[in-house]
């Protein structure tokens, strides 16, 4: 993957988070502590600030660097969770990945995020977007960059009726029902930004 595409991906991911910071904050205020938008913005702006050196690295190392930056800068639970996701992808992906590589690497990264968050599917978390995304990737087929944004959008919306049992939202119990999970939303935003950039 050339440096220009890596830069575009970093810009697109950062742009998606920055332009939805208020929405992520509002979602998190409903069921968490309201810091998800600003935390993710801080993390990705730090990635963007380091975009030159990061994008000069081979893809696996670039992903590791993004993960480390998120761990160090985000400041909330989403830092280690997204950091783990990117670091695991970096560990699993070759420098020039195919769709098959992406599906396999994302499966491994999902396991790493599960371990980090001590959580599983159906618990109203980012995993509820990442898992359907992985299934669709593993299925493959044509027009993935067009279809995957729909998959993650639907998956994020499907977290609305779920009850949170992990994270701050779990304090709310039944009251967490009826709100979209902010981590699911941010995962969908990032996946969509990646698809739109690669498909452009």
């Amino acid at each position: 993957m050339d440096d220009a595409l890596k830069k575009k991906l970093i810009e697109a991911m950062t742009g998606a988070i920055v332009s939805h910071t208020d929405e992520l904050t509002a979602l998190d205020q409903a069921i968490g502590d309201g810091d998800h938008g600003l935390n993710m913005k801080r993390g990705f702006e730090a990635v963007l600030a380091d975009m030159g050196p990061i994008s000069a690295k081979p893809l696996p190392d670039a992903l590791q660097a993004i993960g480390t930056t998120l761990v160090m800068k985000v400041g909330g639970a989403s830092g280690p969770l997204y950091g783990t996701l990117f670091m695991a992808l970096g560990k699993e992906l070759p420098p020039e990945p195919t769709v098959t590589d992406l599906a396999r690497a994302l499966a491994a990264a999902i396991e790493a995020v599960k371990a980090r968050g001590k959580s599983d599917l159906g618990q109203k978390t980012m995993l509820d977007v990442l898992a359907p995304l992985q299934v669709a990737l593993a299925h493959g087929g044509t027009d993935l960059t067009k279809r995957l944004p729909e998959v993650v959008k639907d998956a994020a919306e499907a977290t609305v009726p779920l009850r949170a049992i992990r994270g701050r939202a779990s304090f709310l119990g039944e009251r967490s029902v009826g709100h979209m999970d902010p981590g699911a939303r941010s995962s969908a935003l990032l996946a969509t930004a990646i698809c739109n950039t690669i498909g452009a």
């Binding site: 502590d33 761990v71 400041g75 909330g76 639970a77 989403s78 830092g79 280690p80 969770l81 950091g83 783990t84 980090r116 968050g117 994270g167 701050r168």
Partner: peptide, 11 residues
Amino acid sequence: DLGGAETNSEM
């Protein structure tokens, strides 16, 4: 104290 403190401490 809360969630992120534990996750970040584990990290």
